[in-house]
């Protein structure tokens, strides 16, 4: 990556980032495997993973609906690395706590919540916006319980082709196919390697 699209991004200091990490009890895959993407479709594979059965009391209320708030979502994605800088999406202000919204189930018959994340690319014509968005969506689909629908969008007015990128990020079939692409998976794996 000699030809960086944004060679001098604004970097926030770590201490300025919103944090409540110690209280986070979001489930993470921890099976001693090689990484996040052991399977082709990693987001649901943990359901059948015997190691995921709660062995300790900390996860004993898995079946009840956990409260997951915006801060926890932020914690899951702010540590993702930018594909062209050795910096996190949080410190580059690509992901920001006020741009994360959780919508509760729309009816008492439904248990499906929606997480909406608006990302702010560092520059308006950043062609890596799609890759960053894919990383955020993949990270959340992998880490959040499956009752969450994840909508990742480019924050309005921050990107020249935001509608096209949003359409692509919202298309589950395209996302599924992208995750079967070896080259792209390599990039994503690197981005997400800092999330553990």
């Amino acid at each position: 990556m000699d030809d960086k699209q944004n060679a001098n991004p604004t970097i926030l200091s770590l201490s300025d980032l919103p944090s409540r990490r110690r209280e986070s009890n979001v489930r993470r895959r921890d099976d001693g495997g090689t990484g996040l993407f052991d399977g082709l479709i990693p987001q649901y594979s943990y359901l059948n993973d015997p190691f995921e059965q709660p062995l300790s009391s900390s996860d004993s209320d898995d079946d009840s609906v956990e409260d997951i708030d915006e801060q926890e979502v932020y914690d899951l994605i702010s540590s993702i690395s930018d594909p062209e800088h050795p910096l996190s999406l949080g410190s580059l202000a690509v992901v920001n706590l006020p741009d994360i919204h959780i919508q509760p189930p729309s009816s008492p018959h439904s248990s499906i919540s929606t997480v909406v994340v608006e990302i702010t690319p560092t520059i308006t014509h950043c062609s890596l916006a799609t890759v960053i968005g894919l990383g955020v969506r993949t990270r959340l689909e992998q880490a959040l319980p499956p009752r969450f629908r994840v909508d990742v969008r480019i924050k309005k007015g921050t990107h020249s082709t935001d509608e096209a990128v949003n359409k692509q990020l919202g298309d589950k079939e395209r996302v599924a196919a992208a995750l079967e692409n070896g080259t792209l998976m390599g990039v994503l794996r690197k981005m997400l390697s800092t999330c553990e």
Binding site: H109, S110, S111, I112, P146, R149, K172
Partner: peptide, 9 residues
């Protein structure tokens, strides 16, 4: 019918 495949799409 709601949640025909549990929470899945």
């Amino acid at each position: 019918l709601f949640s025909a495949h549990d929470v899945f799409e």
